[in-house]
Design a protein around this nucleic acid. Sequence first.
DNA 1: TTGTTGACGCGCG
DNA 2: GCGCGCGCCAACA
Length: 123
Amino acid sequence: MKKTAKTSTKVADAAEKSVGTALAQSKAAIYLALMNIPEGKVIAYGQLAKLAGLPGNARLAGKVLSGLPNNTELPWHRVINSQGKISLPEGSPGHAEQKRRLEAEGVVVKNNKISLRIYGYNN
DNA sequence: TTGTTGACGCGCG
DNA sequence: GCGCGCGCCAACA
């Protein structure tokens, strides 16, 4: 209807429209995976992406989390990098916020670092 | 279409 | 345990 003929990848294009840019699913998958994280536990971006069915898309997970609103209900603060540290830059509102939330759930943050060995969520 | 950027991960020294 | 560099995948200009 819109694209008309053009180079007409029509079939692929139509399929793409049906899902709403493939990422929509990925995004939803990441949300679901995030909801599966219990309190007092943390997970790495890559791990989260893998749980969402997107191995190798750790960065994408971060991209999605960055797009989350402030009033989101998702426990985004339970997501950290494989280093066991908060990816957000120190001094950033999100960093302090995340750290505070984690401690509120019983997660001990040692020197801005979290023991994945203890709090790491393994499925 | 090509190049750059990013809430990352892993291997090395 | 820590810092550095390269690699991966998608979005954006």
